[in-house]
Nucleic acid binder design. Structure first.
Lengths: 346, 346
DNA sequence: CTGAAAGCGCTAACAG
DNA sequence: CTGTTAGCGCTTTCAG
């Protein structure tokens, strides 16, 4: 208003105003030692008055750091990732970082492209959740080779030796299954996910372990191999109910298959949880609103985002030793059971 | 691997390699005129071989543009915004832009801070959805004064004369209400939202207009002033059912109050949709999974993101005339009715 | 067609 | 304590 549009105030402007030189102004603004109290105040006052803001682009070019991190997610439309982003951004913000988003749309080519632009933008580090279709990881290895900090969250890869933050799928599945046991169910089935994904394998293992630990047999005929969808849940139930001695409960690999199971059970007038117990995984938003409300395992999404950023920040601040983080830790979050109506007989 | 870690290939490197000068290399890389076909090929081959990628920071400093846009949202955890971000990012990506996210967490101070960092980062434009708590808009006006393109989406403000992309709330409410009329309901109530928010006022108006257009009286005792929550929906139903001639349907200002209404009706053994119709607004994910499934009005979230980016891009490309976009248009998206069980008597 | 030089805005080294 | 100089990597004059 008072000032011509589009005018950016620079250090040079302040220097001119105060008959100083850019260097001094810069020092004063950044509270570097070697500036008199007086000039410092003078400069800072002028900066405030003139509405000066440091140009981060120029700063970045000079400093070799941008205070920006890049985040690659499959899709912002997926609830889960929105929630993780929430955690990441809030934590990043607290530490003076900004967050650049890139969606892979589950495709490796986009992942590749995202990484390329991130490198060009000189982000200080990258957080990523691997696309479902990705089988070749060389673009991720390139980040590592460049010495740019990289942390996976949720969808990680064991073989690459890259730090990550994940939820303990095994334990979550174990909790879910054991809970069904404690509720008195005796033939507990599992709707499994695609076994080429580690998270789904882990859940299957957790399921088996819980049965074994509770002296129940692991019966392969009670394991339905589906994908992750409502339809798979329906199919699983239809399949199980053809058996001579059908199960009386099911632990589904995630909430959508659990939802399908519930729909199918209701269609068949089988009452939940009295005659059939259901537990899902992920704690999707719809779970608490359906009837019966769905028992599930919460994946600590916001916490995951926060932890992922904190781990990345450590790597960034370690700096210098780019190869060091090869052996850096995995952070494994504790899953939180949320048991609602679908599995509680009493 | 083959190359020392952390090494970035610059134009100077290529120039040295080819016994050329940086200027020539730059021209060749960017296909500027004034370079022989031969050198151009030579340079581009070398660039590819050496795995050169233009440093966007340096480019930005020079060019005065970053190809980054800033997006301010209340929270990435809210589904709606995740979905809009999805639309924004995909469209931005297509046009060579990256997306920086900033969450206001519904607080004006954070909005302010986000804008400040965005200005410092010299983003080429800003997309924003206003925080609920914001009543003073001077930080937004500052963007405008600086001549930086700004577009609001969803939560806009009429008085500021800033371009925006919104859904037609009036029309959506009109559709919802008229649909109930067509289904044969005759006393149609409304659960209203906080009236200091324009979107909620518009929905109330749409509701009234549809009644009037269909020769039904507008009865203030059928308008419940709540906030937006499950609890408000329950309260509304409880309130309505104490009346001498209670309503036989309700249009709720959004899905959570509709959900509350459904829960309360079910608790009271009132059958939906036979004895009572319910329509919400927003088409939240849970709507299709609850029983009965919820009729609602879809807000075209992904489309909204895409349109918002496109409008912003126009403003960016107009460039130069910073004040011009004062009078720029509003884009009003058509709401899409999604009628499910909760309102369809047949 | 190519080179030399300057500058985007900032800060760090080195002088004074 | 302050000024001068130089350079981050890039592009764009202006000369040759």
């Amino acid at each position: 208003m008072s000032k011509p549009v589009n005018q950016k105030v620079t250090i040079a402007d302040i220097a001119r105003e105060l008959n100083l030189t850019g260097a001094t102004v810069s020092r004063a603004l950044n509270n570097r030692k070697g500036t008199s109290e007086d000039t410092r105040k003078l400069v800072q006052a002028a900066a405030a008055r003139m509405n000066y803001h440091r140009d981060r682009i120029a700063y970045s070019l000079r400093a070799g750091r941008t205070n920006i991190i890049g985040v690659i997610i499959p899709s912002a439309e997926i609830n889960f990732f929105g929630s993780v982003i929430h955690g990441i951004e809030n934590m990043a913000n607290k530490h003076g970082y900004n967050v650049l988003i890139y969606q892979s749309n589950e495709q490796p080519e986009f992942e590749q492209k995202g990484i390329t632009t991130f490198l060009g933008t000189r982000v200080d580090g990258i957080l990523a959740s691997i696309a479902k279709e990705t089988t070749n990881f060389k673009h991720y290895l390139e980040i590592k080779e460049r010495g740019l900090p990289l942390v996976f969250f949720d969808r990680a890869n064991d073989t690459l030796n890259i730090p990550c933050v994940v939820v303990d799928d095994f334990k979550g599945a174990y909790y879910a299954t054991e809970h069904l046991v404690h509720q008195g169910y005796r033939r507990i089935a599992h709707i499994a996910g695609q076994q080429h994904l580690k998270i789904f394998r882990d859940r299957l293992e957790g399921y088996k372990a819980a049965l074994t630990a509770n002296n129940l047999p692991v019966d392969d005929s009670l394991i339905f191999n589906g994908n992750v969808s409502i339809e798979a849940g329906r199919q699983a139930i239809s399949h199980f109910l053809t058996q001579a001695t059908p199960p009386d409960a099911v632990f589904a690999v995630e909430d959508f298959s659990a939802l399908g199971a519930i729909k199918e059970l209701k269609d068949r007038q089988i009452s939940i949880p009295e005659d059939f117990g259901v537990v899902g995984f992920a704690n999707e938003a719809f779970g608490e609103h359906i009837t019966p409300s769905l028992s599930s395992i919460d994946q600590q999404t916001v916490q995951m985002g926060k932890e992922a950023f904190k781990l990345l920040l450590e790597l960034i601040e370690e700096g210098g030793e780019p190869v060091k983080h090869n052996t850096k830790s995995r952070i494994i979050l504790e899953p939180v059971p949320v048991f609602r109506q679908s599995s509680q007989r009493k």
